[in-house]
Design a protein around this nucleic acid. Structure first.
Lengths: 236, 236
DNA sequence: CCCGCAACACATGCATACAATTCGCCGCGA
DNA sequence: TCGCGGCGAATTGTATGCATGTGTTGCGGG
């Protein structure tokens, strides 16, 4: 069914493309996102660009200032802390459900994902960043609860944006082993242990942040966007 | 500043009107929401109705079926359980922050709200239902964290919709004393106690549900919407 | 009487055109 | 030279019109 969802409307497609671009740090916090430039780049009219932006704004990934244009959100340090705290508590629920009964199939999917992360650890950085986030989303998905999935997704995305703003250029790929540890603990059925490891994992991720604000805006966001746009534009 | 926000665009206005209508059970789960009927009723074009519906869909209050019309969401029993569970854990954070240092001003605002609830307990039911929900939102607001506010808001709304679907016509207003108890415990600074009471409160709210699906659709949703539409339409 | 098919009506998907607002800039006057 | 007021460019806000896809209904054949 997830494959069928690929067939849906343009605005969702573009929304996803922009989201990926933000998560993979091709679009950095604070970058402006004018509607018609984006429309031209994606080969669509402003109508659906607007829809996509509005949705991303609802998710907290972009800021929509009245009559002054959209921009990638720039979360404050306080927001970052709150985001990670809430995410930790939300993922507690995910871990608890998974740890109290992990099926063989679920285990297999998690192992497969970890293998992908490992394979990507040598490759391009955007990919490994995205995979690290998607591990958490996969866990939420495996609970079978749309509610948990939705909120873990959104919080993970926002945390990803936060890291994009506050952490150093490179700070990922150390998390793979931690993901493995979480899976192992869940496999044992030890809810408390799994939860402890997951909390420690998120804490270590967030503590890797808050270093410097990084030098952004070295080049046009339009160029940064090209690889994301081509996939959508080609769908004409 | 909240007053300035009143001046923003139509779609937000309409979005808020629809949300209130859903929360106050003027629009019941499953009711269809065709774009052009709504547009006519609110005196706006389909464009902004669409925006409002799309946003409500993102919040989980509306279901948007492809080419088959929008409708008020009909959460399943499982979703209801997940929603309340996640909401409980999220409000834990709110309670913890408030209980660890409640200012006099914060206390005053909460007391004022409880007084409003009390005053409304004899009045029209929609109002007291809304006030009960808004007490929780006010607590989140008083933490000063936009993140907590946003998610408590959304989860509270969705829980309200859930209650609209599963609970009996009347089951509110017994919660006022519980709200008072929460405030008292927070005032003492006893985080654990406050958390316990808040959890019990939410549990009792959710357990009051699951009675019957109620008889819905007795009349046109257009009539049900009139009081909400007039406020927006008059803004021309 | 039932089944299949085709045309219609309804509802959304999308693009274009127009209106309103904001911000920056330039000229004018003190 | 500095402050101020108005004008213009740019960008968003809103409406309308056409295209597309889906469900339904009515007709004809078996």
């Amino acid at each position: 069914m997830a494959r069928a969802a690929t067939q849906k409307n343009r605005s969702e497609l573009i929304c996803g493309a922009l989201r990926s671009a933000i998560l993979e740090r091709a679009l950095l916090p604070g970058m402006k996102l004018p509607e018609d430039s984006l429309g031209e780049r994606f080969g669509s009219s402003r109508t659906i660009i607007r829809q996509a932006l509005e949705r991303l704004a609802a998710e907290g990934l972009v800021e929509l200032r009245h009559n002054k244009g959209a921009a990638v959100a720039t979360p404050s340090l306080e927001e970052a802390r709150d985001l990670f705290e809430l995410r930790t508590h939300t993922e507690d629920l995910v871990i608890a459900r998974l740890a109290s009964g992990l099926s063989a199939q679920q285990k297999a999917r998690l192992e497969e994902h970890i293998a992908q992360e490992e394979a990507a650890s040598d490759g391009p950085e955007p990919l490994s960043i995205r995979l690290a986030t998607e591990f958490h989303i996969l866990m939420a998905e495996l609970t079978g609860s749309p509610v948990l999935l939705r909120y873990v997704k959104e919080l993970s995305y926002r945390c990803g944006l936060t890291l994009s703003q506050f952490s150093r250029p490179h700070s990922s790929n150390c998390g793979i082993q931690e993901h493995r540890d979480i899976l192992a603990a869940m496999e044992e059925g030890d809810v408390e242990k799994a939860r402890g490891i997951a909390r420690a994992h998120l804490d270590s991720v967030s503590s890797r942040a808050q270093f410097d604000t990084g030098g952004k805006n070295g080049f046009s966001y339009l160029d940064a966007l090209e690889p994301y746009a081509s996939g959508v534009r080609g769908a004409d």
